[in-house]
């Protein structure tokens, strides 16, 4: 018997991609990439960073899905491999949500994690 392994890439859900596209349109941006990275800090040690950029950095890992181009910072990639970026809407929603299989612990607000 074989066990299917999760692909070591970054993905974005259809719902999250639609929200990214809507946001870019609302800002008058016809083209651009969603840059995904982590930075040090936040309660658990690492914090997710989302940014709309005109283009990816030369060293970024680029993934296209549901009409959105994700550009993942190379040093951050090791902490994000396998992550799905989702969107949680509604009154109780959290906005963009990182379903990160590397995160062993997350802080209460969910924007910070440790591996």
């Amino acid at each position: 018997m074989t066990t299917a392994q999760k692909p070591l890439t970054i993905s974005i859900s259809k719902n999250a991609a639609e929200h990214v596209s809507d946001f870019m349109r609302s800002q008058g941006l016809e083209a651009g990439v969603l840059r995904v990275a982590v930075k040090g800090g936040g309660c658990s040690g690492l914090t997710y960073v989302l940014d709309i950029r005109e283009a990816a950095e030369e060293t970024d890992k680029v993934v296209e899905q549901h009409g959105v181009t994700l550009a993942v910072d190379r040093k951050s990639y090791v902490f994000l491999a396998g992550t799905e970026l989702d969107y949680s809407g509604g009154l109780n929603g959290k906005g963009f949500v990182f379903n990160n299989p590397n995160a062993k612990k997350a802080c209460g607000c969910g924007t910070s994690f440790s591996v």
């Binding site: 040090g40 800090g41 936040g42 309660c43 040690g45 914090t47 802080c107 209460g108 910070s112």
Partner: peptide, 8 residues
């Protein structure tokens, strides 16, 4: 505000 360990 937030820093590593702040929540604890």
């Amino acid at each position: 505000g937030c820093y590593t360990g702040q929540e604890v």
